[in-house]
């Protein structure tokens, strides 16, 4: 009885977690305040959905979702390579608007505002993940692998250089590192994971339309990254769980029906504010962005 509801929440945690650690890699470790992250999520979701609707196997859709998103990540890093901080944030935000507009207006491919219905649930090696519990297991495995890969990247020498770029790009350049290449890789890898999160999202919800990929949808993910603490994977896990679960008990508080929507949002916002008031760097934050 409660299990179906709970499994759904766990699946959401899984999707958000992959999305959040990929953003963490760009924002927390590489210091690239990327507000276009939702666009990679969108590209992944659409790539996977369109391929799946044309009867491609799930594993191919899934991988291509990541790879196409990664290519766009590389692409985005070229014009934004000289930008920093708020300027980078604005430029990447523009990118997310562009992708949103394309999804909305390229009607012959994406069906525009009508969206893509009937995206099949994944099947892998003959096993169907159509019921929620098996889907949860799939997500858990992918989330775990993503976590291990990101963890490996951030603790490797490459990760150290990445953090050096974040802290002092000029100094890193002086040491003879190609910071442009490093930032490009970081953005590409980050986009890859956002793309696979998008693929999982599309196959779980089974319907996507451009309204799921607006800048507004990025805010909870950015909240997770900031509240969990920049450059901390442990914090990201904790924050994902808290932020996804937090609104749920509020459903059980019996507000009068006239204020039910806004009241829940207010309480949610209040709790977030309190967390940031007492933990300005997030739970396990190590650095602050300029």
């Amino acid at each position: 009885m409660i299990s179906g509801y709970f499994i759904h929440l766990l699946i959401l945690i899984g999707i958000y977690f992959i999305l959040a650690i990929s953003l963490q890699l760009a924002v927390g470790f590489a210091g690239l305040l990327n507000l276009g992250h939702i666009a990679f999520f969108c590209i992944g979701a659409y790539t996977s959905a369109l391929l799946a609707l044309n009867n491609f196997p799930f594993w191919l859709c899934f991988l291509l979702a990541g790879i196409v998103a990664m290519l766009f990540g590389f692409l985005l890093s070229i014009p934004t390579s000289k930008l920093k901080g708020d300027y980078l944030a604005l430029a990447t935000m523009g990118f997310s608007f562009v992708i949103y507009a394309v999804a909305l207006n390229w009607t012959s491919l994406t069906r525009g505002p009508l969206g893509l219905p009937g995206i099949p649930k994944p099947t892998l090696f003959g096993i169907s993940f159509s019921d929620n519990f098996s889907f949860l297991i799939l997500i858990a495995i992918i989330a775990l692998i993503s976590y291990l890969i990101v963890k490996k990247i951030t603790t490797s020498p490459f990760g150290k250089v990445l953090e050096a770029v974040r802290d002092d790009e000029l100094a890193t350049k002086v040491l003879g590192k190609n910071t442009f290449k490093i930032k490009t890789y970081a953005l590409g890898i980050s986009a890859f994971f956002a793309g696979i999160a998008g693929s999982l999202y599309a196959h779980y919800i089974t319907f996507i339309d451009p309204s799921s990929f607006t800048l507004l949808q990025l805010i909870p993910v950015l909240c997770i990254v900031i509240i969990g603490g920049l450059a901390s994977l442990k914090g990201t896990i904790l924050a994902t769980i808290i932020l996804v679960l937090l609104p749920e008990p509020l459903r059980f508080i019996g507000f009068p029906s006239s204020i039910v929507g806004p009241a829940r949002q207010m309480i949610y916002a209040l709790i977030l504010l309190l967390i940031l008031l007492y933990k300005p760097k997030g739970f396990y934050g190590k650095v602050e962005l300029e």
């Binding site: 009885m1 409660i2 299990s3 509801y5 759904h8 929440l9 319907f207 799921s212 459903r251 929507g261």
Partner: peptide
């Protein structure tokens, strides 16, 4: 909240609980 994810959460809560 015009969000399909939240819509599913709401549906599960209404139907299962």
């Amino acid at each position: 909240g015009t969000d399909p994810k939240k819509g599913i959460s709401a549906f599960r809560k209404l139907v299962e609980i």
